[in-house]
Design a protein around this nucleic acid. Structure first.
Lengths: 211, 211
DNA sequence: AAAATACTGTTGCAATTGCAACAATTTTAC
DNA sequence: GTAAAATTGTTGCAATTGCAACAGTATTTT
């Protein structure tokens, strides 16, 4: 399916360096499991994950944690496109990380004269489009009624992405329950039902759809 | 709160005309309640709502309808940022509509020489950021457990947007149930409970939070 | 202004779900 | 390599939710 677009895709290293210099970019290093702070004043800052992985996480008022997004190398995050209306959002590293911060208005300004900046902007749009698709998928899952159907939908989606009736679960069951926003034990029960009804098999994290 | 950015924001009419000419844009008219077709081959086409309103709607396999997004004048839609993995997505006009289609790769190409195109791209990014925020809000609502909490969260969010404990519901209750993805009658029951518990009042579609 | 359509408000009942609690296993950390 | 932490798997039970089926109001349509 869709190849994941990266913010520096199709850009030559030497042009990129020049661009990052003229943007006064700022690179910081984080250890695993640290909060990546990036919201300074109300400047429109974009964080770029150069190396490592991080999650976009919400903590709601009763302390419940929800992973809103998993991010890898070449991915971006920004206050520009997350709201903080309902609980607290943070970006938390899940490995050691190298993160570069740039200011979006500077990038746009730069694009007036720099071809490279325009390429980055194009990649930025692709990344945002990608995020929109993912959030759409999540919404589609969350709006299906019943745990049973959520599981079936999720499995079908993964199968389609893998071009096969079999695929390896990339989440733990605990995280999957979180992703589908259902009680874990209730989900396990439905999973068992699906197996009993011969709709799927599940040999340690490898799911196969039988229909 | 956030003023909704429009795709033609901050662009002079005469520059815009020139741009749309050089992009070979295509303008079509639709009556109310028509499907707006725009996915032609796999070209990266962006639809721009010049006049009127439309909804992004999903029909799942059991025929259930879900409104994924409501769009107004100056808003955009594109295969670029919706997936069609799970059921069928369509854009359906909810008033008479005037829609212009442009091809995204042409827009990027044009930005190499045209300042106006770059402004449009900037607006495009703002719009996408806005959509990301909205889908985020929706996800946050959908991941809250229990109808009661969904309602309270939704009301609090609306109150915050209005800077007031009172606000007018912009949805019908039928649509709100759809948006929160819960059974309408169960939602009405919880709404009644909230009123009985003196947490809110509801005088024909004007909600007031009492705490 | 009548008819048709859509929305609101309500209820009993059955099905689904969440919660709590636990043992067993696996993974991570020191 | 052992202790600690996290994940898996299971169950009874209570609470929440969805469904079906109404009647009553609004709102469109012609």
């Amino acid at each position: 399916m869709l190849e994941k677009p990266r913010i520096y895709q199709n850009i030559e290293q030497k042009n990129l360096k020049k661009l990052l210099n003229s943007l006064q970019s700022n690179t910081l290093f984080y250890k695993n499991n640290q909060t990546i702070a990036y919201s300074i004043g109300n400047r429109e800052i974009i964080g770029i994950i150069e190396e490592g992985k991080a999650n976009l996480v919400r903590f709601d008022y009763d302390g419940k944690r929800t992973i809103l997004e998993e991010m890898n190398e070449g991915d971006i995050f920004s206050d520009l496109f997350i709201s903080t209306d309902n609980g607290e959002l943070s970006v938390i590293s899940t490995t050691d990380c190298k993160v570069t911060f740039i200011e979006y208005p500077e990038l746009i300004e730069e694009a007036k004269k720099s071809h490279t900046a325009l390429l980055v902007i194009n990649n930025l749009i692709q990344l945002m489009a990608n995020k929109l698709v993912k959030r759409n998928e999540r919404i589609e899952l969350l709006t299906t009624r019943s745990i049973r159907n959520k599981l079936l939908n999720y499995f079908e989606l993964q199968a389609k992405k893998n071009n096969s009736k079999s695929f390896n679960l990339e989440y733990s069951y605990t995280d999957l329950a979180d992703y589908l926003s259902v009680d874990r034990s209730a989900m396990m029960r439905e999973l068992k039902n699906l197996k009993d009804d011969n709709l799927i098999t599940d040999t340690n994290k490898k799911i196969t759809i039988l229909y």
